[in-house]
Every structure is written in structure tokens, then in C-alpha cells.
Design a protein around this nucleic acid. Structure first.
Lengths: 166, 166
DNA sequence: ACCATTCCTACTATACAAGTAGGAATAATA
DNA sequence: TATTATTCCTACTTGTATAGTAGGAATGGT
């Protein structure tokens, strides 16, 4: 499970947008998430091109989520920043059964990251409210019980300002 | 789940040793596993230093497993070739809950790779015998059923020639 | 003595990750 | 319309890890 700095930053930025109730400047994201300023620009641009966030230029511009936080899975973000993985090198006959093992690991990882949404992560970090996270299949912090199955939570992530932009 | 060429090669080499019933030359391993010759040397050396295999120099020398194939988990091999992972970069407050998710992914991955032994992989690839793999918690190929729990298989991996070497 | 093999250190080449630079486009405001 | 704050875009630099190579020393069988 490789997590690049870029991906870590992108997730932080998305979470920052998810908790805000109005457009946020790149500057602010960079500071609060401790992302190098220009690199932050760079990442936000990539996220916008992928359709995960929207933006507005000029003074009073900023970024916001394209969809409610409850409808954006961690996997959605990670896929963008990590890009497509290079084709696996061919297996020798003796090592062929390993292919299936790698597949299973990838599947599990993918299933988990596709279940957990930005809203789930925020709920897990919020001192109040995490009690009812079990109801919607959300992610609960320490007292174990991750991914007990259940449908993806669909709550609006608090960041849905009515505003039209590209 | 990153798998470097080095790790893939190392696993192939270990499997090649696991199916052999006597010492195998680096040359032979390189050919059958399609590993660049000198690189193969390099990797075998690392595996020996880690105590996973033993060796003998000179004509009629070669390499063999230090322990039965049923007592060498994939994780044992991977740990050697991948080395220790670099310390994770600090999390911003908003992204803190992610730490636990990464932990769980790593744990699951580790648990799985620690359960599956070289002998299990060989059994999975072998046309005959994979039927009874379920008894010893082993890894079964396609007809699903991975990691049903159960203790690590302990069968001798067919490669235990009595021979003393460093 | 000869030869095949393992053993060891160090080196190179390439790719990718992380981050930077310079400025163009856009939009609010005065 | 000028100013200014912001996003937008391409391209560059730099560091680090991966993949693989080179040259030869040590060992052991015949």
C-alpha cells in the first residue's frame, strides 16, 4: 500500500473542502494542510480536471467539492493522484499463483477505499457524532469495527454551495 | 501494494528452490525465473544474508532453502527485499483519521502474506493435490476461499537436503 | 593446477516523485 | 477602465529509489 505525498496532500485538501461551507482559497488549504504553496495549486488543478472539485477565479474565488462529501470515496481521490498502475511484469510459471494473491490484495484494498467517503473520515475525526456512524456503514475510529459492510453513506457533506462554475 | 521487480524475482527464486530436491545453481534460477544473471546473484546473496537460504561454493555448489517451504511465509521474503518502509509523513489534523485506515490496510496485507507459505503457493499451482489445501489453512487457487483462517501449514517443503553450510 | 561456482563492493542509468518558476486568464471592485 | 487577487497552465529542476552491471576475490571439487 504505497501512499505518495501527492495523494496524502490531495486527501487533506479534499477533507479541508469537505468541512468548509463555502469556497476555499488554495492559499488557505496550503497553510492548514501544510502543503507547499505551488504544489498545492498543482494538485488542486489535477483534482479539478478529474471533476472532483470545482473552482472560481478572481478575488473571492476558490475551490469547493463537486459532489457532497458523502458521495466521494477515498478511492476516487487516490485514483486521480496515483494514476493508472503500470502493467505487471510477466510471471514465471513457478510464480504464477502469486498473481492471484496480488489480485486479492488489490481487491480488498480497493473495496475498503471505495466504501469509505470523505464524510466518513470527517465523522471519525469529529469528537461529537461518531456514535451513529455504525448505522450507515461508516468508518469508526479506534473501538474497532471497520467496514462492517452496509451501503455507502450518502449524507451531504456540508459543502454544497449553490454556485455555477466550470 | 507495491511489488518491486526485485521482490518478484526473489519470490520466484525461493519457489524455484522450494520445488527442487537438491542445491540449485544461480545460473539455473536465473534462466528458469527469467532473472538477469548478475541481478540474480545479487538477490540470492541478500536472501542468504537474511538467513532464508543457504549456499555452497565451488563446482556442484548451489543454493537451497534454510527452512522447509511450509515454514517460510511470503512476508518473510518480502520483508527482506523491500526493507523497512520509510516513516510516514505527519498528518494534518483534518487528515488524522486516515492514519488508522492506512494501518488497517497494512495489517490485513501483512496478515495475509504471513499466512501464506511457499508450500501453499506451490500447492496452488500444482495440478494434483490442491484439493486438501483447505485442511491446513492453505491458499487455494481460483474457486475462491482465501485465508479462511487456521494455522500456518507446517509441512516440510520437500527441500531439506542434509548438508551443512554457512 | 584448474575451473566452476558463490561472494562482495561499488558503480551506472533510468524513472518517478516532489517541488519550483514564470507568467497568462479571469473576475470582482473601485 | 485600471487594479488586484485569484485560478490556470506548461515546463523545468532536483532528489531518491529501482533496476541492473562490472570487476574481481574467495572457495571447493576434480
Amino acid at each position: 500500500m504505497r501512499i505518495s505525498a501527492r495523494t496524502q496532500y490531495a486527501l487533506g485538501a479534499m477533507l479541508a473542502l469537505a468541512v468548509a461551507d463555502r469556497p476555499v482559497h488554495a492559499e488557505r488549504i496550503a497553510v492548514t494542510q501544510e502543503i507547499p504553496r505551488r504544489f498545492c495549486d498543482n494538485i488542486l488543478l489535477q483534482l479539478r480536471r478529474a471533476g472532483l472539485i470545482r473552482s472560481q477565479r478572481g478575488p473571492d474565488g476558490g475551490y469547493w467539492l463537486a459532489r457532497p462529501a458523502g458521495q466521494i470515496a477515498l478511492a476516487d481521490v487516490i485514483r486521480v493522484t496515483e494514476g493508472a498502475e503500470p502493467p505487471a511484469r510477466p510471471f514465471s510459471p513457478a510464480a504464477a499463483p502469486l498473481a492471484e494473491i496480488w489480485d486479492r490484495l488489490r481487491s480488498h484494498e480497493n473495496a475498503l477505499l471505495s466504501e469509505i467517503t470523505l464524510a466518513d473520515v470527517i465523522a471519525a475525526g469529529d469528537p461529537r457524532s461518531p456514535a451513529d456512524a455504525s448505522k450507515d456503514g461508516g468508518f469508526r475510529p479506534s473501538p474497532n469495527g471497520l467496514l462492517d459492510g452496509g451501503p455507502r453513506s450518502t449524507g451531504n457533506g456540508s459543502a454544497a454551495v449553490g454556485r455555477e462554475a466550470r
